[in-house]
Amino acid sequence: MQITKPASIYCALILVSCILLTGLYGLLVQSRTFSAQQWSSHSLDLHHRSLNGMLTPQQQDMLSAEALDAMNKAVYRDPYNPNYWVRLVVMNKGNEQNMLRNSEAMGIAKLLKPDIILHHDQYIVPLNPARQKISE
């Protein structure tokens, strides 16, 4: 049972090309999970920098807002990761304006990880040096 027509080879070539493209996609395009990891680590770095006492309160607020924004992007990309939600809550703790969003984020984190305990040190560990290049 042998098919010696070149059509079968051409079909196989198309299939292998598809697998090759899939492999290249996996290699070159960041997965959403990986992208979320990058945003999360960037957010932690910004948060860490915002705690620097040498900065003015305005600079600290600006860095905190940037850190929160980056963490929101991480959560957007990987919404089923409870750690990101907890980090969001911890970063947003002193913000009175976002109380409602904070309680919502905590509720989601509790759903994803029922035995969660808010240890600040456990979730907010900055990476050093800060990552500068983040791809969308």
């Binding site: 090309s17 492999g23 290249l24 996609y25 996996g26 290699l27």
Partner: peptide, 10 residues
């Protein structure tokens, strides 16, 4: 895994 896949495909 993607890298291994690319090598096998090639």
């Amino acid at each position: 895994m993607a890298f291994v896949g690319v090598l096998w495909s090639l």
